[in-house]
Write a protein that binds this DNA or RNA. Sequence first.
DNA 1: CTAATAGTGTCTCTGAGACACTATTTG
DNA 2: CAAATAGTGTCTCAGAGACACTATTAG
Lengths: 224, 224
Amino acid sequence: MSTMGTPTDSTGKSLTDYPRPSVAVDVAVLTVDEVLKVLVVERPDGSYALPGTFLHPGERLADAATRALRDKAGLTDVVFHQLAMLDDPERDDRGWVLSMAHSAAVPAADIPADAQLVPVTETADLAFDHADIVRFAVDDLRRRCAAEVDPGGFAGESFTVLDLRTLYEVIYDRSYPKDTFRRHLLHGLEPTGELRREGTGRPAEIYRRRAAPLPSSTAAFLLQ
Amino acid sequence: MSTMGTPTDSTGKSLTDYPRPSVAVDVAVLTVDEVLKVLVVERPDGSYALPGTFLHPGERLADAATRALRDKAGLTDVVFHQLAMLDDPERDDRGWVLSMAHSAAVPAADIPADAQLVPVTETADLAFDHADIVRFAVDDLRRRCAAEVDPGGFAGESFTVLDLRTLYEVIYDRSYPKDTFRRHLLHGLEPTGELRREGTGRPAEIYRRRAAPLPSSTAAFLLQ
DNA sequence: CTAATAGTGTCTCTGAGACACTATTTG
DNA sequence: CAAATAGTGTCTCAGAGACACTATTAG
């Protein structure tokens, strides 16, 4: 790096002398719809990829990601995070393109009806290295769900413990004993005082998420 | 994104029509030398920054980081990881420069004698947003040290439990009870069978790290 | 009543944490 | 012997996990 305010790096070479990579952003939008799925968009050649775009001049990565989600997938107000920078020089046939991978978790209800969702287990033929991004995103989601109750809001504003357990069993692809699950996850919930009566059986209490992070013992329980 | 093999994006605009950012890498090299410190290099204007460099054409980020560590800090064979992409368009006076922040942990003994180390608590006047990178790196180090015994090898090949406890007390900036610390960390250690006699008192057993990851209960203990 | 689902009392067993003890050295 | 440091036996208490029980509904 060099003296601030001068257009040279520490070797005296002008910054503009370096050929520069294109920089892209890609977002793995995860949702739960029976199984864990990821949103994909069709490309001109008929293949599928995660929604993404090139970074515009002076634009921030987060703004580019927001733009990609809006323009390619019709999604707004999505919270996302950086995952990793993908930098294989051969990853894009069109040239030297780095991509900042992001992940987001969006309730199925908030995803436009015409969007295409594929199970995260069936991403082998996504374009570029996007199957890798999906793997990163699933790992990231599991870590987040172990630290906080349903950070993506998959279960909506309020829900029963059974709703939540069913959700977590999908996300972690395993089952949990109902009593231990309840006692663990209650630490991150607060009762609304309402009940859900549905079919036969005792009505279920309805909870909402508490801001508090889950204790690390809960993370240990969820992650096995 | 666009059809593979064609030089246009989905709007039909050529890739080369977009002005592109410069991409840099910066590495926060952490070490423990009485306190937790980070390696800095002096810049031509006399200010200090983390070692970094611009990405060369077709180069991978990891290779650029390796090059920066070798050329700017005289370090080789360092293991590092991506932390985050810093993308404030105003972060570098010289123009539009994105930087991939990395972290590494290196034993003090492996750092060249002429390198400059500053405590991680005194990074406020580093150039650019490098103080932010140091914060990310310290958080990252603490997470890694809770998942595995001394992943940076700060304590060397072999060490006593007291060595390790002293090290962890520096990294986490707190103290730990000796018996509980011992019982927890022993899960990630294997005895060498050797003893260290030093001054008065019973000789200490010497251990080395085991490959096994620490149980999550140990992470909970270390992180409070 | 039965069937069905929600939620909890409670037992057991593990293990964290704390204290104080034993073990092994030097002088 | 005393002083110093390393390591452990053990007690207590909290809590995870499992089982079976109670609670509350529909029919």
